Amino acid sequence: MPLVLFVVDEVQEYLMHPVHGKTILDLLVFLARVAPAVGVSVMTATQKPDDTACPSVLRDQHQARFALRVGAYQVSETILGAGSYGEGLDASRLLKSHKGVGLLKGMSDDAGIVRTYLADGRDAETILSRAQALRQAEGTLSGDAAGEAPADAALATILDDIAAVIGKGEAKIWSETIVDRLAQHRPEVYGPWAEMEPKPKAEQLTAALKPYGIGTDQIGRRIDGKTVNKRGIERAHIAKAITERNKKRDAG
């Protein structure tokens, strides 16, 4: 049975998502509870270990806890578990000079201070070269790690899809409107985007277009006699990005 380590850094960013946060929390709790039986370990990290950012229902599933220096003993106990302060474990007592030093609990019968080590450039190269060799031996190396360039068609899908849902007479259009149309055009890809609230929905499109140098602007529309401004894009910018992409593809 292969061993799998599932790592989620800054886990609060996922758990506090306005639309999918509750679902992500439920799935992480489920994995932490039952996945170890099939060789899957869940590791989460956060700088906000309170109940809002990382609920206790998830924290309590972690048998091993590690706390770097924190500002108060209450925060330390939140990370290391109830009763840890009474056991003499208090990460707030660590000094600022204790770089990489923290309190580890749950890995052995005795909990205490441990030191971590930062891998420099040479260490990282050795680690990554070894990892690449192992993946290559197992036949799991692919994509950029194997030196394969991503297909242009895959990279440009978002551009072509947007071009397909914008009408010829529409010079400017709101981002959230585009997302709704994309979800109708290709629900298997963009369906989850359309389920978001208006602002996250627009931000999702902005992030997807950022690699192509396409930004968003305030676009005003008259609705019921009032001007409503929302973020959106220009059709001309999409057309220009597609033209530049095609030129590079033809030149290659």
Rank of each mutant, 00 (worst) to 15 (best):
Lys210His: 04
Glu176Asp: 13
Ile242Lys: 13
Glu170His: 07
Val189Asp: 02
Gln184Cys: 08
Gly106Lys: 04
Gly213Arg: 05
Val179Ala: 05
Tyr212Glu: 03
Glu138Gly: 10
Asp26Met: 12
Asp152Val: 14
His62Leu: 09
Glu138His: 11
His237Lys: 15
Gln12His: 15
Leu94Phe: 07
His20Glu: 05
Thr227Asp: 09
Leu118Asn: 09
Asp90His: 00
Leu205His: 00
Ser142Tyr: 10
Pro18Tyr: 11
Val228His: 14
Val34Gln: 13
Thr206His: 14
Ala202Asn: 00
Glu176Pro: 00
Leu95Trp: 14
Phe30Leu: 14
Met107Pro: 00
His98Trp: 06
Arg122Glu: 15
Leu159Gln: 08
Pro198Phe: 06
Lys248Leu: 11
Leu141Met: 10
Lys99Pro: 00
Gly169Pro: 00
Asp9Cys: 01
Ser129Glu: 05
Gly39Cys: 07
Ile242Ala: 08
Arg65Phe: 05
Pro150Gln: 07
Asp123Gly: 06
Gln132Ser: 12
Pro2Ile: 13
Val179Gln: 01
Pro192Asp: 03
Leu15Met: 09
Asn229Glu: 13
Gly215Thr: 14
Leu27Phe: 06
Pro55Tyr: 11
Val19His: 02
Ala137His: 11
Gly39Ala: 09
Gly252Tyr: 00
Ala64Met: 07
Ile79Val: 12
Gln12Lys: 13
Gln136Glu: 15
Ala236Gln: 02
Val75Arg: 08
Thr243Asp: 10
Arg65Trp: 01
Leu95Met: 11
Gly169Phe: 05
Ala53Gln: 10
Gln74Ser: 14
Leu134His: 12
Ile178Ser: 00
Gln47Ser: 02
Ile113Asp: 01
Pro36Met: 07
Leu25Pro: 03
Thr157Gly: 09
Thr140Ala: 14
His17Cys: 04
Ala151Val: 06
Ala82Trp: 04
Gly86Val: 04
Val38Glu: 07
Trp193Val: 02
Lys105Pro: 05
Glu148Arg: 13
Pro55Arg: 11
His20Asn: 06
Leu94Arg: 03
Leu103Ile: 15
Gly232Asn: 11
